[in-house]
């Protein structure tokens, strides 16, 4: 065996080991969701049991699908809104040289460094004052303005949308919003896909704000549903784990199907090539 080949095999084994470390917790979770609660406490097994259907029945009785529906509404509308806001703002900073644009863009960059959680107390007071408690609105509207999204769109549009196109569209009589929505947007579809995926995951995962503003179980999103499984099933650990699996697997599948777009999106924002 040559030295080079030996290295390659060692590397491959390390790679498998690391991948296993990353995947095993998910595997154990799936295994446990197919077992009877008593058996989980008895000892470790690596093979699936036969109680998956029973567990699923228990989960469905507790209306986990409501949490799902809420999470879908939140993630989808927050993503759509955020994409519109970020695209418009990024387009403006990338294509126009207007008065104050430098200062305003610096402001956008600074917002990226300030964690939104720090205003949490007043945010909740504000939500109470405008009657948004126990609605999904605090999870949809405020997250639409992200400095990261604007910065990211500005970079992408600036380097991918030729200015000549803008000028020729103007000569053809297109209006400025017309240029943005019917000429620029089709040019930046990959950017919209990546940013959209990132936003979707962030909003789906959101925990702190819903934990405070959602107090009624019919408004719970999936993460809040998961931590409240305790009160729903009490002793039934297997059912809880089944619900947990249902809560996270669709997102993982979405990621697996779109891994490339997603990963390139995350790095595109910060790594300049």
């Amino acid at each position: 065996m040559t030295k080079k080949k030996f290295y390659k095999i060692v590397l491959f084994l390390i790679m498998i080991l690391i991948a296993l470390i990353c995947l095993l917790p998910f595997y154990f979770m799936l295994i446990m969701s197919t077992q009877y609660t008593e058996d989980i406490y008895k000892g470790i097994t690596f093979l699936p049991g036969r109680y998956l259907l029973e567990n699923l029945k228990t989960v469905m009785n507790a209306h986990f699908e409501v949490y799902y529906k809420n999470s879908l509404i939140v993630a989808a509308s927050a993503t759509a809104l955020s994409l519109i806001v970020s695209t418009m703002c990024g387009f403006s900073f990338a294509m126009y040289n207007f008065k104050g644009s430098k200062f305003l863009f610096a402001f956008v960059l600074v917002t990226m460094m300030i964690p939104t959680q720090l205003g949490l107390v007043a945010f909740v007071v504000e939500m109470k004052a405008i009657g948004w408690m126990n609605t999904l609105l605090p999870l949809i509207v405020p997250p639409a303005a992200t400095g990261f999204g604007v910065y990211w769109m500005k970079n992408f549009i600036g380097s991918n949308f030729p200015k000549e196109l803008m000028d020729s569209a103007r000569i053809d009589g297109a209006s400025e919003p017309g240029i943005l929505f019917s000429i620029a947007v089709p040019c930046i579809k990959p950017a919209i896909a990546s940013l959209g995926l990132m936003n979707f995951v962030t909003n789906w995962n959101s925990f702190l704000v819903p934990l405070i503003v959602l107090n009624k179980s019919e408004t719970y999103t999936v993460p809040i549903g998961i931590i409240n499984l305790n009160s729903a099933y009490r002793n039934d650990l297997a059912a809880k784990i089944t619900a947990l699996s249902i809560g996270i697997i669709p997102l993982l599948i979405l990621f697996l199907l779109t891994a490339k777009t997603f990963i390139s999106g995350i790095t595109m924002g910060a790594v300049k090539e």
């Binding site: 403006s92 956008v108 205003g119 107390v121």
Partner: peptide
Amino acid sequence: WPYIFILPFFIIYIAFNCYPLI
């Protein structure tokens, strides 16, 4: 138009981030 395009971001950010921070 450039100002109109950036308006939504700034309105939402100021209303739900700046204001709570202050």
